[in-house]
């Protein structure tokens, strides 16, 4: 599994929670370029499963505020801050914020650098969405 295996080879793992598969996938791959281990959760229920899995060592949660599930993104963040205060939670209110946050995480991550600018990530997501609506 990514985070357990990642813990052997990289210093940090990130749980990304986003119900939009396009932005989730692109930002997850961006973070993988930075040598983070990444766990992708499609909703807050999957995020809670990941957080309850002892073999995963998650350090940071990047959560879309509008993530769906039995808890909202905000509620998940509140739950984590109460029950897992050792974890860093970054809430993002959209793809621009998520990409910017991912870039910041890369600068403090294993490679200490962003692989490319977050604007390229945003443009890529926009192009994928545009191709979807054609």
């Amino acid at each position: 599994m990514s985070a357990s295996r990642a813990s052997e080879t990289v210093s940090s793992s990130i749980l990304i929670v986003d119900g939009d598969i396009v932005s989730r996938h692109v930002i997850a791959d961006y973070l993988r370029h930075c040598a983070y281990g990444v766990v992708e959760a499609a909703n807050t229920d999957e995020a809670l499963i990941a957080l309850g899995e002892a073999t995963l060592s998650i350090d940071v949660i990047l959560c879309d505020v509008s993530a769906l599930g039995s808890r909202s993104g905000f509620e998940l963040a509140t739950w984590v801050r109460t029950n897992r205060p050792e974890l860093e939670v970054r809430l993002a209110g959209g793809v621009k914020m998520a990409a910017k946050t991912a870039a910041e995480l890369c600068e403090s991550g294993p490679h200490l650098a962003r692989p490319y600018e977050p604007e390229a990530v945003i443009d890529y997501i926009k192009r994928l969405r545009a191709s979807r609506t054609r």
Partner: peptide, 25 residues
């Protein structure tokens, strides 16, 4: 993760609806 370790690009979809979104893009 096993597929990524083998060098494949992977897209993770949690259900058929997400898969159809991927297939459109």
């Amino acid at each position: 993760d096993g597929l990524r370790d083998e060098g494949y690009q992977v897209i993770e979809a949690c259900d058929a609806d997400e898969a159809l979104t991927v297939l459109a893009a």
